[in-house]
Design a protein around this nucleic acid. Sequence first.
DNA 1: ATAGATGCAAACCCTTTGCACATTA
DNA 2: TAATGTGCAAAGGGTTTGCATCTAT
Lengths: 353, 353
Amino acid sequence: MLSPSQFIEKHRPAGGRRSSKRDFIVDVFLRQSGHLGADELVTLIRNEDARISRATIYRTLQWMVDAGIARRVDFGDGKYRFEHSYRHPRHFHLICRSCQQSFEFLSSDIEMLLEEVANARRFTPSESVLQIYGKCEQCQTGLPDTTPRVPLELVFARDALRVAIATERSGLAFYQRAARLARDPRGRRVFERLAAEEREHLSTLEARYRELTEAEPQLEAQPAFLFFKSASNGLFAAGVEELSAPGVADREALRIGIRCERASYRFFKQYGERFEESEGKRIFLEFADEEREHFELLVREFRALVARQRSRKVKPRRTTSTPEKATTVRRASRPRAGTTRAGAAAGGSRKRA
Amino acid sequence: MLSPSQFIEKHRPAGGRRSSKRDFIVDVFLRQSGHLGADELVTLIRNEDARISRATIYRTLQWMVDAGIARRVDFGDGKYRFEHSYRHPRHFHLICRSCQQSFEFLSSDIEMLLEEVANARRFTPSESVLQIYGKCEQCQTGLPDTTPRVPLELVFARDALRVAIATERSGLAFYQRAARLARDPRGRRVFERLAAEEREHLSTLEARYRELTEAEPQLEAQPAFLFFKSASNGLFAAGVEELSAPGVADREALRIGIRCERASYRFFKQYGERFEESEGKRIFLEFADEEREHFELLVREFRALVARQRSRKVKPRRTTSTPEKATTVRRASRPRAGTTRAGAAAGGSRKRA
DNA sequence: ATAGATGCAAACCCTTTGCACATTA
DNA sequence: TAATGTGCAAAGGGTTTGCATCTAT
């Protein structure tokens, strides 16, 4: 993972020349955690015993924004704040109007809805600003903030792991059920193999999660940064439900699996690519890779199954399929099959809160 | 509905004195449709052949904001814009970075998610700012804007009607199915009565919609203002699905209906109260009233049913229920009755969730 | 040697304000 | 007449810029 100086080098635009003053400003700036106004940065620089003119600070801030090292945010109080992007993905803000403190969050669900709105207007979005103004807990209750400050970078990694784990869990449930429902022995083996993989990967992720939280005991108490609600419910949850519909043969199960893996892959890939270099980004991209592999495996299996079924039709042998109806299983685990089927027909839209 | 001058009078704070200049500024301002910077308002005033100082314009803008006549919005370009609230509910913005035009929308789904985020942080929100920056369709394609401008107020009313109609439709579907499933004759009559009411109200709403769109032919082509996705899917849609579960007796159906009506009532009431005086507000509040009445009716029926069932247990008469099994109906529409019947027998009469 | 970085102070932009004068109740 | 509203010009704040002076390549 990139160190702060590697981060700067990666972003340094070609053609300019180095300058010790600029380097110093950037260094001081990167050491800060929250949002800084230009003036506050000037003060910090002065405290660190350097005499750099205000104009240079402003110019360097602009330079950092252009380079992608910093982002300029507008809290609506007539002056700009700056936050660095080192290990910080782009996010939204909660802003306390009484103490001016700000809190960061990111919601994939909201971003999805924003995309829909933009699409409906045929608007090509480039950036979204979302700020919730109000009163923070401390200013509301008058009590001091007892929660210890943990670098956002760790909370981000924690939440990335949580999302991955939730997805992994729902994936495991999916393949377990699919294996149980499978009629074709080869199909069953595929599902079992994937279930085993998910199980193993899940324990890896959980170990990583434990490691992270044990290294920083305060971490679990931190409020969430990622509000990835739909993903946290498990991207395979809908698929698991669909499996329970009547008449879901191996072929259909594969199809559902393919759809879920693709959706999952895309989701983790999209965010992983968008995030700044960080542990969170790595978790997302690694997970996306896993999902892509599963996706590809399923596609291969699907093709093989189709080929097998076709050849069987041409020169029919003994029927290997339907020795026991899926219905049996269904009745045992899930009595109301009617709804599910109606829901499945409607597509993925039936998410019940 | 309030006229512009009534609107001003309603908001005029007590204790101040009238002034012809201020009145004139407010009048000019209210005649505008979009967002104005202070300077643009000065220009407008000058064009209307009045010489009013810039300071007065600024002071009047502040006065309007304090009075609730105007809202100040910050598009992040270093100057404030103002929009009046006459028949315009608070909303979010899409802002084109190349032509500076802005488009308005409101999403209840996003607002719901925002509330969840704030809750998770124990943050007390007072206002949310949401802006999507990017390129509008015209600036993207280079084509001129052919869509005729229709006052937002009408689009707002149209969308309010659409949301109400969608809810009404899903409500109708709910009561129709509930009536079909009902075993108790009195329960069935209640559901039938409510279905009839919904049908009637639905046609009223549809007539109102037709009236609106016929008066302004361009209205239907306008992009949406309200993105009330979950409501537009029908607030009873989940209820309809739940009805199909096995073992849903009259009592449970009533319970589901009560839950849906209450949710619907709250939803329309909440937004209706929040909206500025307008046709859209009226539609929401009237609809909320309807839902409240249904809610109360269902609660009464539920209580009566419980009482009836209790007294029947004490002194058992001939069974008035199950002259024909609900299963019959269900089997007709849905082939797999085996599960359903078993479920109905088991859960129907005794289990209460 | 020369493009690029810095310092200083002035300019900028939008907005607010102090004070004398005008209006309204 | 006494409290409010208005005009003018000046001040305010955060930010940008022109220009002379450095400094890194």
